[in-house]
């Protein structure tokens, strides 16, 4: 059995305006030592998924169904108390904005010590030493002194390092990073990406990186899951996604990005329209109103939700177009436009 396995996870929120289907039937597996990148635009359900795995929607209004298996334990049906003992110890999270994720009133050290002592029966002194070790390990200079600093005394990059130290303090086996570098400058982002890569190797944890930035995903991930409207639309190794993507939405994302490693093409190829509202997800394939190839499905995309099917060797695509046709479109119509003109 895989280390982490999601089976048909659904997280729905009832609201006055209707049912928000943030995550709607998501399944994937992840092994220790591997990195999964989850890519999607705002409202695609990627953050809700991560909070769902951590059990942070429990006790709220969310309706959760499906299964989440972590190292042989099922989490959707588990009690809040039980998930709480796993959180921090077995699975931990790195949030996007360290300034709002850390408590401004307590020193960075206190916050790491607290997390550590909840899960480990040790004295304050031992915990403090551990906190200093962790800060040193994530590359904070003079950790013995900085352990007594407040979050506001740290720069953005240092705060993100401190948060990584906190997440790693109990040696978690599953680490979820939600937009870990979005709030950072590009040179600092490069530092943090390097750090995360090194630490993952050292800790042999399973890592989930959630981001909208395809560049960040390419830097870190072994496997990539593309989400749209609460569903997985494409899943594969990072080579699958970047070398032979088969879903029109993935093509759209690739065509939308100006890239430094290619000639500046004359025009970007954006996806038309905007991401769907999760209350009124379009009928059939959720992407069909924005899809440039929708008419080639002879109306099928408008009425029927496509299945997530394997095209080859673990590469999954949710699209009505037959695989050969998708490959032909990629080869003849999309790829040439992405390259130097």
């Amino acid at each position: 059995m895989s280390f982490l396995e999601l089976k048909d996870l659904r997280i729905h929120f009832p609201t006055d305006d209707g049912l928000v289907k943030s995550v709607d039937g998501l399944s994937f597996t992840l092994e220790r030592g591997r990195t999964l990148g989850i890519v999607g635009e705002s409202g695609s359900g990627k953050s809700v998924t991560s909070l769902g795995i951590l059990g942070l929607h429990k006790g709220g209004r969310a309706r959760i169904s499906g299964e989440i298996w972590l190292d042989g334990e099922e989490l959707v049906g588990a009690s809040q108390e039980h998930v709480r003992t796993l959180r921090g110890k077995k699975m931990a999270m790195i949030f996007q904005d360290p300034l709002s994720a850390m408590h401004p009133f307590y020193t960075v050290g206190d916050q790491i010590i607290e997390a550590y002592r909840i899960h480990n029966d040790v004295s304050k002194k031992v915990a403090r030493k551990h906190a200093i070790d962790m800060l040193g390990r994530v590359g904070i200079p003079q950790p013995a002194r900085r352990v007594d600093s407040y979050p506001h005394e740290f720069s953005g990059g240092m705060r993100q390092r401190a948060m990584i130290a906190m997440a790693l303090s109990c040696d978690p086996e599953l680490l979820i990073a939600d937009e870990p570098t979005t709030a950072l400058d590009v040179t600092v982002q490069a530092q943090i990406l390097d750090l995360m890569r090194d630490l993952q190797r050292d800790f042999d944890a399973a890592l989930i990186v959630i981001t909208h930035d395809l560049g960040v995903v390419a830097e870190l991930s072994d496997d990539i899951l593309v989400m749209y409207g609460g569903k997985c639309v494409e899943y594969g190794t990072s080579d699958d996604i970047f070398e032979r993507p088969e879903h029109p939405y993935t093509w759209g994302l690739l065509g939308s990005m100006p890239r430094l490693d290619r000639e500046p093409t004359e025009r970007l190829m954006p996806i038309k329209g905007s991401p769907p509202s999760l209350i009124n997800v379009p009928s059939g394939c959720a992407f069909h109103p924005r899809c440039a190839f929708e008419e080639r499905t002879a109306g099928l995309a408008k009425v029927e939700v496509p299945e997530l099917r394997e095209t080859e060797g673990g590469h999954l695509v949710r699209c009505h177009l037959p695989a050969e046709r998708r490959r032909a479109i990629w080869r003849n119509e999309i790829k040439p436009n992405l390259e130097a003109s």
Binding site: V186, Q189, G215, A218, E219, S221, L254, L260, D261
Partner: peptide, 14 residues
Amino acid sequence: ALLSAVPIPDPKRR
């Protein structure tokens, strides 16, 4: 340094 820090969406290039 700025240019080399930009993540490039191409796993081969990394």
